[in-house]
């Protein structure tokens, strides 16, 4: 039994290692892309949004960066993980291993990329002379909420997309709309009161807001928001696990 636990852990690490190795295998800059990519994206977005839309936001590049890196993690991992059963169908038919590892490892390797992306964020903050404040130490809490929510949703999507191939196409569109419904480029204050409800029911809104508070504003988020957001994410995570376990054997015949 103990041996089995070690095996599962080893296999999970191996999947993550493989993902990370393959990601930049043939590129010259390699892992540096994980740091460069958000930086370049920030530059493009800051130019577009501050000149075109003229939002009155102090240190706009930091504002953007503290939203976009987390959103990118969320969208890339849910997108990739949702296909992880389909794209590994031949492997799944050859050997038995806990299939949940495919989804979790794919999310975790994206998560490691996210941690790399925090490096340029902190550098930029020093560059703009607004170094991280004490509130920054709370960052693990909203990040954990984000991770749990992402894994939970990925587990659900990975099963659904085997039942219905169309799910992955629809999800692309949902993601696009979802991104604009989450205040990543714009301040939440520009949303008219009557539409505020759409922000309130959006779990990503609460996560992003908490992250912004600890990184960008240097405020301590309200304990309520943090706890509620964590409980919600944890429930989605548990539901995802349950849903996956319940369906994984049925889905095998469809692969």
């Amino acid at each position: 039994m103990e041996n089995k636990f070690i095996w599962i852990k080893d296999l999970l690490f191996e999947f993550i290692r493989k993902d990370l190795k393959l990601k930049y295998k043939r590129s010259i800059l390699g892992i540096a892309w994980s740091i460069l990519n958000p930086l370049l994206m920030m530059i493009v977005m800051s130019i577009v949004f501050s000149y075109l839309f003229r939002f009155q936001i102090k240190n706009y590049p930091i504002y953007i960066l503290s939203g976009i890196i987390f959103w990118n993690f969320f969208s890339t991992s849910t997108n990739l993980s949702s296909l992880s059963l389909i794209s590994n169908s031949s492997l799944l038919k050859k050997v038995y291993f806990p299939r949940v590892l495919l989804v979790i490892s794919s999310t975790l390797s994206q998560f490691i990329n996210l941690l790399y992306a925090l490096i340029p964020l902190v550098i930029i903050m020093f560059f703009y002379k607004t170094p991280p404040k004490l509130s920054f130490i709370l960052i693990p809490i909203p990040i954990l909420s984000l991770l749990l929510f992402t894994i939970g949703l990925s587990l659900i999507l990975s099963i659904l997309s085997v039942y219905f191939t169309d799910i992955s196409y629809i999800y692309q569109i949902i993601l696009l709309a979802w991104m604009y419904l989450t205040p990543i480029f714009y301040p939440p204050s520009i949303v008219p009161d009557k539409y505020k409800i759409f922000l309130q029911i959006n779990p990503m809104y609460h996560i992003i807001i908490s992250l912004r508070e600890v990184i960008y504003s240097g405020e301590f988020p309200s304990l309520n928001t943090l706890t509620l957001s964590f409980i919600f994410s944890f429930s989605i995570f548990l539901f995802g696990l349950w849903f996956f376990k319940k369906n994984e054997n049925k889905v095998m015949y469809l692969l």
Binding site: N3, I6, W7, D10, L11, F13, E14, K18, K21, L22, K25, R26, L91, K94, V95, F97
Partner: peptide, 24 residues
């Protein structure tokens, strides 16, 4: 099972062995 063309022979030994149920 699980062989990846981009990985080296050594890396594939570990990946394949783990998939076949061996520990690291």
């Amino acid at each position: 099972a699980g062989f990846d063309m981009e990985l080296t022979g050594k890396e594939n030994i570990f990946l394949n062995g783990l998939l076949l149920g061996m520990t690291r």
